[in-house]
Amino acid sequence: MSSDKQTSHVVHSLTIYQVFQELDGHLADTAEEYRYDVESGLVKLQNTIAGFTAARREQDERAARRHHEVTAAFETRRNLIKGPTAAARQQIVAERVAGLNISPLKITSTTSPETALRMGDAATGEERWSLTWLPEKVLTRQQAISAMVLDDIISHPDELDSATMMLVLTELVAELAMPLEQALVRLSFIKKDTKPPRPKRLTHPNPRGSQTVDHLKPILREAK
């Protein structure tokens, strides 16, 4: 009898899963709002997945645009450092030369009052030119054109970036056998309408001698 009594008090244990399964079943039977609509749930899940997909696509597109912008900026910076090719620099100079008024005796610019004048030719027949902004140098015709282009670029750089302009100016002053700093200082005095330091001698880029600048003053006054 004692054995039967012990048997009647045996308690069967339930797992957590079973408990919640029973609870879900009870709520589904008794609470309308607890019943799960499989179709609407599937639609909601699809919409959620689509939203995540769209957000990821937009994030990928933003990353691609940012990568393109960074790459383009890097290429632009590298090109500025490297500078334009020699052909591109020659094209820049050629376009400036085309804007000059070049005659056998005079070279003028539509953007600057500076002028190049032809003096008496050398004994060898080589043309000799003088500039209003650089009267102490006797130049060849090509050097006079380069000097006029240099003044034109400094006066009106237009769309040239600083790196390109410095490369072109450096090449132009090399033809004049003078440092770029000296040319810039001279032109800055001219643009401010002040007198630059007066040169002592008139010299040729490849001097065979020197002469005073006094005989050039009437010619320069007429050009102005």
Rank of each mutant, 00 (worst) to 15 (best):
T71H: 09
R89Q: 14
Q91D: 15
K137V: 14
P84M: 11
R77H: 13
Q91F: 04
K137D: 11
A94P: 07
F74V: 05
R141N: 05
G99H: 07
G83W: 10
A94K: 11
A86I: 12
R89P: 12
S109V: 05
A116T: 04
G83E: 12
R77K: 14
N101R: 06
G120M: 06
R118I: 02
G125V: 04
Q142T: 14
L100Q: 03
A123C: 02
T132V: 01
T71Y: 10
I81P: 00
L80H: 15
S109L: 08
A98L: 09
L134Y: 05
H68I: 12
P84K: 11
A123S: 11
R78M: 08
E126G: 03
T76W: 13
T71A: 15
T85V: 09
L131H: 05
S109F: 06
R77Y: 12
R89L: 14
T124A: 04
A116E: 00
L105S: 13
E114C: 00
R66G: 01
R66Y: 00
T110D: 02
R77A: 15
R128S: 04
P135C: 01
T108R: 06
G83F: 09
G99I: 03
R141Q: 14
W133L: 05
A94V: 04
R118F: 05
P84E: 09
A87Y: 10
R141Y: 10
T76L: 15
M119W: 02
A86K: 12
P135I: 03
A72R: 14
